[in-house]
């Protein structure tokens, strides 16, 4: 087939435009979040003392951190799926999220006596945390990976990992309402570990499915 011939076929197919990329990602983000919310409501549920907990700063900071992670990573995914686009403030926003978490850890180390550190770090629910965050990440992970396939990333592994970060941020946001460990020492250890697990899976999956 001559290149000229191919052009004819491309022009003939040019009348129908695919769904805009940004819209597909947004639908995936919203759909994935709603599905996770439903799964959480049905299968997990909030901790019994959630009303009292909501008056404590430590509890609330967990939601800020998880939401910030999901949003910053989503902004970066939206850039990564466009060839030649610069990465914008996505990387800086992710660093800010990490800094927020590190800041919370420092404050905790200052206000809590060192004899308490170990107990707060290990907490009561680390196995739950490592299981439930990935479980609650599945829906946004699948939806966003599918939407990212519609794009054209030049770094499939990286984009897959960042899709994992968005999903883990969403999963952890809901899990945080169930989790009774509110110390930043616990969050920085176990939430981070669960997030790294999902990001690692994202990198492996992205390397396979995000090629185009």
């Amino acid at each position: 087939m001559r290149t000229e011939d191919l052009l004819g076929a491309l022009v003939a197919d040019g009348g129908v435009l695919p769904t805009p990329l940004g819209r597909g990602l947004l639908v995936a983000l919203i759909g994935g979040t709603v599905a996770t919310a439903a799964l959480f409501a049905v299968a997990v549920g909030p901790r019994p003392d959630v009303v009292e907990a909501a008056r404590t700063v430590r509890f609330l900071v967990k939601f800020v951190e998880c939401a910030a992670l999901a949003i910053a990573a989503f902004v970066l995914v939206a850039r990564l799926v466009r060839p030649g686009a610069d990465r914008g403030f996505g990387p800086a926003a992710l660093i800010a999220v990490a800094a927020l978490l590190a800041g919370a850890v420092v404050v905790e180390l200052v206000v809590v006596p060192s004899t308490e550190w170990g107990r707060r770090l290990v907490g009561a629910n680390w196995m739950h945390c490592l299981g439930l965050i990935p479980l609650l990440s599945i829906a946004p992970f699948a939806a966003l990976m599918l939407a990212a396939r519609h794009g054209a990333t030049t770094s499939p592994h990286l984009t897959g990992a960042v899709v994992g970060l968005v999903s883990a941020g969403i999963g952890a946001f809901f899990y945080a309402a169930n989790c009774t460990d509110d110390s930043p020492l616990f969050v920085a250890t176990w939430y981070t570990l669960a997030t790294a697990l999902v990001a690692g899976i994202g990198a492996a999956v992205g390397g396979r499915v995000l090629r185009w």
Binding site: L17, P18, P83, H150
Partner: peptide, 8 residues
């Protein structure tokens, strides 16, 4: 052609 929607 197939990825033209990824152009901003």
């Amino acid at each position: 052609h197939l990825k033209r929607h990824t152009w901003d």
